[in-house]
Design a protein around this nucleic acid. Structure first.
Ligand code: SF4
Ligand code: SF4
Lengths: 132, 132
DNA sequence: TTATTATAGATTTTCAAAGTCGTTAATGGA
DNA sequence: TCCATTAACGACTTTGAAAATCTATAATAA
């Protein structure tokens, strides 16, 4: 069980947007170069982040991406959910109804993790981290 | 991000072992039939559970599997780790050392979930659940 | 000895993630 | 009005790990 590499890219891209000056949008070309990934592939993740409402995009000359909300209001969970979706990490083929305790245990465990990730804001990192 | 289906099988198999009478070992043939999966495939997961020390196996006639520990001492996390391994769910290709805060956040979040899963014992389910 | 059962390794199949390619739409500037 | 720039979209290919099968071997009780 692992997060997809796309989530890795998205986290780093968001981190870069936070540390970047907010007056000039950042294009996918620059981001892709920084992260060492192709533009076309990265742009798919950026589009997901846009649709999730975390960033806003502007086409055309001098376009690019910038944060939509304040960095203090963007959590790790927001980013992860935008890329990975919100499906539970345990779904069996049968559906024995809500009385299934196996599913309940895993879902509750997952909630523990999500609460932690929800309280960790991207701004918390930007303070102390060097961008590379 | 999802748990592998193998984990699903392992959880159900363990649950069956708990509810089964402890004097007679349960063979993979019976288990596979109950779970609707092939014997050879299921046996690989059972072997992992054996190597993890959760169950013990006996070959030969009237052989099979039985619990090694008390069901109160077997947690969800034990089973999941036996199948999925203990690798972190976030590992980037670069290694920027221990000062990487991204990894730290995800690892801490994961620990939250694992603590919950560690406290949930398989015996907790056996009490209230019907086997099917 | 023999039927039974777990273990092991090699192999194939399946399927979603990872990545590419070509096109379209929107925007600012010349 | 035209053009260079950049995001968005959909179809497609590649990759790799999980899922599953097949065959052979080892251990054990009867
Ligand atoms: S008991 Fe729960 S996890 Fe198991 S098959 Fe039924 S619904 Fe699925
Ligand atoms: S900052 Fe952390 S997560 Fe990002 S590339 Fe470096 S070690 Fe990996």
């Amino acid at each position: 069980m692992k997060y997809s590499q796309a989530t890795d890219y998205a986290l780093h891209a968001m981190l870069y947007l936070v540390t970047a000056a907010s007056d000039k949008p950042v294009g996918v070309q620059l981001l892709a170069e920084k992260l060492g990934v192709s533009q076309t592939y990265l742009s798919k993740m950026m589009t997901k982040l846009v649709k999730a409402g975390l960033i806003q995009s502007a086409p055309g000359a001098n376009g690019g991406y910038r944060l939509r909300r304040k960095s203090e209001d963007i959590s790790f969970l927001d980013i992860i959910h935008a890329i990975e979706g919100t499906a539970s990490l345990f779904e069996c083929s049968f559906d024995h109804g809500s009385e299934c305790l196996i599913q309940q245990v895993v879902i509750d465990a997952e909630r523990q993790m999500e609460q932690y990730l929800e309280n960790k804001k991207i701004a918390d990192l930007a303070k102390t981290m060097k961008t590379e």
